[in-house]
Design a protein around this nucleic acid. Structure first.
Length: 490
RNA sequence: CGGGGUGUAGCGUAGUCCGGUUAGCGCGCCUGGUUUGGGACCAGGAGGUCGAUGGUUCGAAUCCAUUCACCCCGACCA
């Protein structure tokens, strides 16, 4: 275990913070609430981006880029949208500084006040739909399937590295369609893309569902989401996909002529995932020995540590290792052969363990004699001796096994921590145990709000295809057709 | 934004209540040597306007005021 590293048991949120900082993923910056993503953390984000971007393109989307600034007036055009974001916007009011006439330093030049203030985008629906108005006249212009990779700013009161920062990186897809059905199936498709990414790449099992009206995106008709369960029993919203109906088309006057020569408003979706996924990834798999990364997202998949007493002994090891490295690299596996002489093997073992490298190989004089290597896997912290000629195949299999095992382990944890409750008393007990609690709800925002006030738990989602089961609302006793999923959440 | 806490070298801290030599220690860092199969050892060395600003005082890390940042609990949060 790393020195001075808090365990999950001692203090989960301290553990998380320590992990992010000591594994060199990110750190706080000079700007309140804004983080610096360090190279190792950014490398993981880049792997996420690459995988997601490929999936977006496979489903017909293209990338574009819109301005970081949005005229203030745009926000007043969609009523619920402004209400959702108004309280957390950074506003640009001036465009120039000047030397302080009263002393040192610089001041904002009062003469350089903007005619109209600019909002640093908290999300881009408004600027994009204002732009789409000029792009769309006919059904032939549809659909528009655009994504952008960008940064956004939401002036949050309390921030935590990756989980909630004032500025964060994300992608936001904004699509325009001729029909409601088409837009709806787009929103559903992207939800599936997110779920696939979470499960196949991040090895994080997710529930798919619909948000209740209270939790719905500001301006959306329907919000779909994926929810993951963290090791402390709290839920984390990992991605959302919104069916926006004609709300933004109406707000920005985006109309098209249909095949039937009918003028109608355009149907919209938007969908996004952010660097918050980093938080989900970290919290899902990591342990008291540090970060644990799924092989598909690990910047370094295999670390090879040579062990030798004298520098002359390194050459024969390198000779054995070179062909392995080339073979693995040819298969697209990222390998780090760590020949740094300034650190001992033990130090390196701990380093790679803490940084979550899935597979570690050690080769020393003993192995050269026996024609073997020591192979350690990060997820189980086990080691085995493998003959050199089998090493390549062994590592390839091991990477797949680790990827699968992490997912299965996380899924088992989630299942163990998904419970049902039929009485209020039981509901409270289950919530305090942590995890998802399936319970009946009478479908009203008032009841949901009341439950939130009493328990701090929210409806994480309403299952997409809920199992029909007559029941009584956990709070009011009113009839309910099916259960919804509650949890305390990040 | 409300309540509580903390700011001393890159990191972790002692000293602060009760003002008084040159602010001490561990990790890390640099140099040299010996080491290297789970965070090596020895010797030497560098690094501090004690978060910032202002005040009280012969004298401030220490007392007072203001301010900034971070942490915890609330409120807030697609």
């Amino acid at each position: 275990m790393a020195k001075n590293f808090t365990t999950r048991e001692e203090n989960y949120s301290q553990w998380y913070n320590d992990l992010v900082i000591k594994a060199d993923l990110a750190e706080n910056s000079a700007v309140r609430g804004c983080m610096v993503i360090k190279p190792y953390g950014y490398a993981i984000w880049e792997k996420m981006q690459q995988a997601l971007d490929a999936m977006f393109k496979e489903t017909g989307h293209v990338n574009a880029y819109f301005p970081i600034f949005i005229p203030k007036s745009f926000f007043s055009k969609e009523a619920s949208h402004v209400e959702g974001f108004a309280k957390e916007c950074a506003v640009v009011t001036h465009y120039r500084l000047k030397n302080d006439p009263n002393g040192q330093g610089v001041v904002v030049d009062p003469e350089a006040k903007l005619e109209e203030e600019l909002i640093v985008r908290p999300t881009s629906e408004t600027i994009i739909w204002d732009t789409y108005r000029n792009w769309i006249q006919s059904y032939r212009d549809l659909p528009i399937l655009v994504n952008q990779w960008a940064n956004v700013v939401r002036w949050e009161m309390r921030t935590r590295l990756f989980l909630r920062t004032a500025e964060f990186l994300w992608q936001e897809g904004h699509t325009a369609h001729a029909t409601s059905d088409e837009a709806l199936s787009e929103a559903r498709q992207m939800l599936d893309v997110y779920a696939t990414f979470a499960e196949k790449w991040m090895a994080v099992p997710v529930l798919k569902g619909v948000k209740s009206p209270n939790e719905r995106f500001a301006g959306a008709v329907e919000t779909f989401c994926i929810e993951a369960l963290m090791q402390d029993g709290k839920a984390l919203q990992a991605g959302t996909s919104h069916f926006l109906g004609q709300n933004f088309a109406k707000a920005f006057d985006v109309k098209f002529l249909s095949r039937e020569n009918q003028l109608d408003y355009v149907w919209a979706t938007s969908w996004g995932v952010s660097t918050r996924l980093m938080g989900a990834l970290i919290m899902s798999h990591s342990d008291d020995h540090g970060l644990v990364l799924p092989p598909k997202l690990a910047p370094i998949q295999v670390a090879i540590v040579p062990i030798y007493k004298k520098i002359e002994q390194l050459a024969p090891i390198s000779e054995k290792v070179d062909s392995l490295i080339n073979a693995l690299k040819a298969k697209g596996i990222s390998v780090k052969y760590d020949t740094r002489d300034s650190y001992t093997p033990g130090w390196k073992f701990n380093e790679y363990e803490f940084k979550g490298v899935p597979v570690r190989v050690a080769i020393g004089p003993r192995d050269l004699e026996n024609g073997t290597a020591e192979v350690a896997r990060r997820d189980l912290l086990t080691k085995e001796i493998v003959p050199l000629e089998q090493l390549e195949e062994h590592i390839i299999n091991l990477l797949e096994q680790i990827q699968t095992n992490l997912f299965e382990r996380a899924k088992e944890y989630r299942e163990l921590n998904t419970k049902t409750a039929d009485t209020w008393e039981d509901f409270i007990v289950r919530l305090d145990e942590g995890g998802f609690v399936k319970a009946h709800w009478d479908g009203t925002p008032e009841t949901e709000q009341k439950i939130k006030e009493l328990t701090k738990a929210t409806i994480r989602l309403i299952p997409l295809e809920p199992e029909q089961e007559e029941g009584k609302c956990i709070l009011t006793g009113n009839p309910s057709p099916h259960r919804v999923v509650f949890a305390r959440a990040y």
